[in-house]
Amino acid sequence: MKKLNSTGLLGLNRRNASYSSVWNDSQHLARADDKLKAKAMLQEIEIPVPETYSVIEHQFEIRSFQDAKLPQSFVVKPARGREGRGILVIESHTDGVWRKKNSQLLSRLEWELHLANILAGLYSLGGRSDRVFFEYCTECHDVFSEVTYQGTPDIRILVYRGVPVAGMLRLPTKESDGRANLHQGAIGVGIDMAEGVSLHGVHHSRYTDIHPDTRKPVKGIRIPFWKNIVEIAVKTYSVFQLGYAGVDFVVDKLRGPMILEVNGRPGLAIQLANRIGLLDRLNAVDAYGKSIEEKTWQERLHIFNELLIDSVHRIPR
């Protein structure tokens, strides 16, 4: 037990008592939870997000919805969905038949039922009624396509008081059905914060170094646009004011890094992926005093770089 404490591990109790409840205002959380609102706010300061094609708010709009206006490939999402639930990735569609990314076909009945369930709040936080939106389907960047199984991998950056403290590359598996969620069986891979190169992986709380489906090593992937990603993550703090947040990125083949969502309740598995407890890094940020939040994003980025040089954020390989 002593051994575990000495690794500076952050548990759920401490996360709730000393971090997420202290730094995340419930009003600010609600803003980040609504993906449509969050996207609009990010676009205001010109942070790239996937383009929204169309929104459905009411049940009666489903029948008359003209999906012919949508491009062949798109994603269906609930506005307040969580853990990637209710997300439907459509590869192509013709009149009355939708083809999912995993080649399953959807009939009109199934399509309408799915949209109706999203509106009824089946996938949303607290089961409140929700909206559906259709957005640009990101294309997997070449560096990931060899390793990952279906789906698009995403990159989570844990941002504490506006300073990135840890990163994790999340690779979908067959088990996770193309979703990049660790609870559903995706693989989390730690990231060297200085170089943006992937380290070791974790699958269902166990260490692993290879992807279970593609059998390729997860180590040594150089994440493209790493410096941009870190910079955007720092900027996001000014938008949402969430002091303990996970910023989820996807690197699109054509359009580069984009923010998928900002999560105000990031999980603890990032510690397993990086094989390190978070407390040391969080304390190192706290050492900069009370007014980090009021600093400009450039100053916070500078703090991040200083911490890198101080080797706090680096992981012994």
């Binding site: 759920l12 109790n13 709380s205 094989r275």
Partner: peptide, 14 residues
């Protein structure tokens, strides 16, 4: 704010 017992199991690899 200590670790929960099940977390000792969850983070056993660490």
């Amino acid at each position: 704010t200590g670790l929960r017992w099940t977390e000792y199991y969850r983070f056993r690899d660490l």
